[in-house]
Amino acid sequence: MKTDIILAGVGGQGILSIAATIGMAALHNDLHLKQAEVHGMSQRGGAVQSNMRISDKPIASDLIPMGAADIILSVEPMESLRYLPYLKKGGWLVTNTTPFVNIPNYPEVEEVLAEVKKQKKFIAVDADKIASEIGSKRSSNIVMLGAASPFFEISFESFEEGIRQIFGRKGEDIVNSNLKALRAGREFAEKNR
């Protein structure tokens, strides 16, 4: 079993807490894990990605080869398209539909979403909307993780356990709102896959 995930977004959007939660879920299942992050200059509002690899066998490269990713999980729609060369045939593109516009020449959102919908397998979810509907605006990144969770060979309970461990020290309320976000994202993906 092996799952390669490209996590994508803009510096400051919280893809590293998604990565940390997946990491915990993987450890919970005694899986091997490698996760390459971007630190430094790009974190200042630039395009950022994290290469996450989970396997029941030892993993060689920290970087996912092009054409090999099982999932692109993006918290921003245009950023989801930037890594398409990494997606393998039959891989899932899972993206938030709310754009993060911090450049003057950001394309029309409808055109961006049209490109997303050209993919054979995609989930396009308005994570920001779902997050505010469940009363937890800041959990949109965890909604996204929930929406991608069906495509991992990891049980949903392991992701829940990951949430408890990552957010545990921030208190019961934060844990519960993130669990709610995770479930809402999962539900959306199950209905729309």
């Binding site: 974190q43 997606l87 490109e115």
Partner: peptide
């Protein structure tokens, strides 16, 4: 892979509309 003479087959490419997003001051 290329140095070893292996071919990489790519399925997707970056759509033209994707813009660079350089880092910026906060």
């Amino acid at each position: 892979a290329k140095a070893l003479g292996f071919e990489t087959v790519l399925d997707g490419e970056i759509p033209e509309l994707v813009r660079n997003r350089p880092p910026s001051m906060c």
